[in-house]
Nucleic acid binder design. Structure first.
Lengths: 144, 144
DNA sequence: TTTAATTCGGATAATTTTATCCTATTTTTA
DNA sequence: TAAAAATAGGATAAAATTATCCGAATTAAA
């Protein structure tokens, strides 16, 4: 469904949000360990998220990644997914046609419509705060 | 959402179904042309669908691909997707965790639940007959 | 001011997916 | 029976994704 890059990006963002609530900055190493991802590859994805203003990075000793506390609840999954995978997951044609719309639909266009819309709605209405709180309370997990 | 292989497989199956209703067998070349796919790659996918009993192939001169008319309405999208991509699209964890279930959910497990279920339902309840008829009536298209 | 801890960024490698090519095999028809 | 028209399948190549490595730049602290 999502690319590996996007999976890592989402998990990393949640962990960074969680730490930012605690007021602690996390390092690449700490993130990769926590979300069980390859360190160097994760670095690339984090850079991408920094460029897209999803997270902040602080260079140098005692540096790391963080998200401004007040912004955590306004960051949606769609921001992360868009930064990494683009919006093709819910805007592209399910069968890869170049033009696929109401006037010229692919065979599954209408069948997929509600799935795509529900996915889009979900991504646009799920924010980092709730995801982080669920990790904190032990209601969900970042690895295994 | 789907792999290219799966996209080609779905489109090819619809075209084969359509032709089978007309009582004509279609060649690899004819299929690739109709669905705008690379010929040799499409051949591999068709072999896969033959092995999984989704379509039939007849070798030799005047050979080609077909689906038994009476079976067309019983072939679901899920059969095609499963043959080519497996069921990871709606059974795997959205964030790639090895174990992700009600007891040990990933952060988006519950959020994704309805999307996955709707996708699964749609794939399991859409059959080749309706898709082929929509092409025939001009309500949907296989290329462009 | 040096050192250590970091992120950044470019180069490269491994893996997977997508795509191509060529030969073998099968089957119909002339 | 030979030739032509197909699919089958193995080998290989190209492209995209995932992953690694290493040096440069930055920053805090000793």
């Amino acid at each position: 469904m999502f690319s590996k890059a996007c999976e890592y990006g989402i998990k990393a963002s949640i962990f960074i949000a969680l730490s930012s609530y605690k007021g602690v900055r996390v390092s690449l190493k700490g993130i990769a360990k926590e979300i069980n991802s390859p360190e160097a590859f994760t670095a690339k994805i984090l850079q991408d998220l920094v460029r897209h203003d999803v997270i902040n990075s602080i260079k140098g000793a005692h540096g790391g990644f963080e998200i401004e506390k007040t912004l955590i609840s306004s960051i949606k999954l769609s921001h992360i997914v868009n930064a990494i995978d683009g919006d093709s997951i819910y805007s592209g044609c399910g069968l890869g046609l170049d033009t696929c719309d109401e006037d010229h639909p692919c065979p599954v266009h209408h069948k997929f419509k509600s799935v795509r819309e529900e996915l889009k709605f979900m991504l646009e209405n799920t924010n980092l705060e709730e995801l982080a709180l669920n990790i904190k309370s032990g209601a969900s997990f970042l690895k295994m």
